[in-house]
Amino acid sequence: MERLFTYLQYPFVRYALIVGVLIALCSSLLGVTLVLKRFSFIGDGLSHVAFGGIAIAGVLNVSNDMLVVLPVTVISAVLLLRTGQNKKIRGDAAIAMISVAALAFGYLLMNMFPTSSNLSGDVCSTLFGSTSILTLSIREVWLCIVLAAAVLAMYVLYYNRIFAVTFDESFAQACGTKADRYNLLIAVITAVIIVLAMNLVGSLLCSALIIFPALSAMRLYHSFRNVTIASAVLGVVSALAGLILAILTDLPVGSAIVAVQVLVFGICCILEKHI
């Protein structure tokens, strides 16, 4: 405990905790909608696209890779989350296609145009998060705070519409709600959150941040509002616990957080049987 207190004196530890909590909060809120719309693998798909975006940014020698990564990921999110209406390519097949293609081309580009001496290190760190969360600059922390605040504000304001569009999109549309617009909003917010979450757990584990808190909450609660709140709480608590565990020991950050989330899910399953 004392050790943790000492560690909290370090600014990069405080930054990590702030950003970790905000990312976990946004991911778990959105996770409820994505899981219910059967888009659980969107986290994986979009994070691979973001990986591809990072590769492109490196090749083009863009100083701030967010300028490339964010737009590319947002566009992919919009395309993927709307293919539900496309009869030729169903949702899950589209996600799988874009996901592996982005990963393959990203790695190919990085190999053909290497921008750093430690290529495998860079790739590994992007895929697994490595210690990226502990090496954030103050500017990155601010960016994260601003984006997270925007996401939260929009979620709260459009909560009822997001619920209507998640439960029954055609009904909402028949009543005059512009379902397309809210689907677009959900897609954009998802993309932003994925790009931020890559810093926390890396590309490969992004899905976990989205799906585990939502699934755990659904085991225990019966109204959409309670599921949403529980998902947010569980997401934040497991991210904090995982982060602190990793900081105090030698465990990798991303895997520690996901391991805690799986544990929490297991506990919720057991509680469900006994309540």
């Binding site: 370090y10 530890v13 210690t131 502990l134 465990l251």
Partner: peptide, 11 residues
Amino acid sequence: SGNMVYAQVYD
């Protein structure tokens, strides 16, 4: 701890 050392050296 390991992660802290890496982060500190990075800083």
